[in-house]
Simulated assay, not measured.
Amino acid sequence: MSTVLRVSNLTKTFRSGSRDLTVLDDVSFEVEDGSTCAIVGPSGSGKTTLLGLCAGLDAPTSGTVELCGTDLTPLDEDERAAVRNQYVGFVFQTFRLLPTLTALENVMVPAELQGRSGARDRAATLLDRVGLGDRLDHYPAQLSGGERQRVAMARAFINEPRILFADEPTGNLDVETAETIEDLLFSLNETAGTTLVLVTHNLELAERTGRVLRLRQGRVELDEMRTAA
């Protein structure tokens, strides 16, 4: 099995007033192709910062991130964006849908950025897969939180990404809706054979993955391989 994500001695420091604040401190790990991994830990432990660095949304203070065979370290923001567009899907806690586009149009955006043909049909198929086949022409404001997250998941998978990063994907949802979204996420991921890396406070969600990384004060406190449920 090949390595899709390799993190080596990753450190991220921010300037806070007159002092430096180290959010991540010498973090190293690898994620294998097709695997599932949860990043957990208390608030302020560096989870979301780590996810952003892994996805090339930000650059580390030191250390390296190799994503799908590409070292992100020497790349500028535009070059990192090109790598993300080719290999990465995202699901965020806050959905991040474009309010002026319909559900169908929101899902189509990544495929259109890549110039893929058949984007409309694939978007419609994915929306039907997540139970929104009758909501194609609805705008985000006309959808519930759970429905918006379903649109976001369909959008994440439209380019058949090699790796999917999910940041608190059920954090804004009630318990029942969250369980439905979790089931859809793992079902879509299994069908696509995508590598899944997610940040969550929900330990039950984390236990559904094949590996749990626990952060504390910016360092890896626990790296547990497990049999996913």
Rank of each mutant, 00 (worst) to 15 (best):
M1G: 08
V7I: 13
K12V: 07
F14G: 11
S18L: 07
S18M: 06
S18Q: 13
D25Q: 14
D25Y: 07
D26Q: 13
S28G: 11
S28K: 07
F29V: 08
F29P: 10
V31K: 04
E32D: 15
D33W: 05
D33E: 15
D33F: 06
S35A: 04
T36W: 09
V40P: 13
G44V: 01
G46R: 00
L51T: 02
L57T: 02
V65N: 01
E66K: 06
E66C: 05
L67E: 10
C68W: 03
T70N: 07
T73M: 05
P74L: 00
P74S: 04
L75C: 03
V83W: 10
R84Y: 04
Q86A: 12
Y87G: 06
F90S: 12
V91K: 06
Q93L: 00
F95H: 03
R96W: 10
R96M: 09
L97A: 07
L98F: 06
L98G: 04
E105C: 11
V109A: 11
A111I: 09
L113W: 02
G115K: 01
R116M: 15
D121E: 15
D121L: 14
R122H: 14
A123H: 06
A123V: 00
A123K: 12
A124K: 00
A124F: 02
T125N: 12
L127F: 06
L127Y: 02
D128Q: 14
R129N: 06
R129I: 01
R129W: 01
V130W: 00
L132Y: 02
G133V: 02
D134A: 15
L136G: 09
D137M: 05
Y139F: 15
Y139K: 14
Y139V: 04
Y139N: 09
S144R: 01
S144W: 14
G146Y: 10
R148G: 03
R150N: 13
M153E: 00
R155C: 03
F157N: 13
F157D: 04
N159V: 12
L164S: 08
F165G: 05
E168R: 02
T170E: 07
G171L: 04
N172R: 04
L173S: 07
D174Q: 07
V175W: 02
E176F: 03
A178I: 07
T180M: 12
I181C: 05
E182F: 10
L184G: 10
L184W: 09
S187I: 09
L188N: 06
N189D: 05
E190R: 14
E190M: 10
L196W: 10
V197L: 04
T200M: 03
T200L: 09
T200Q: 10
N202E: 05
N202W: 08
L203W: 01
E204F: 10
E204G: 11
E207N: 02
R208D: 11
R208T: 10
T209R: 11
R211L: 08
L213K: 01
R216H: 14
E221N: 00
E224S: 11
M225G: 13
R226D: 02
T227V: 15
A228M: 09
A229G: 14
A229N: 09
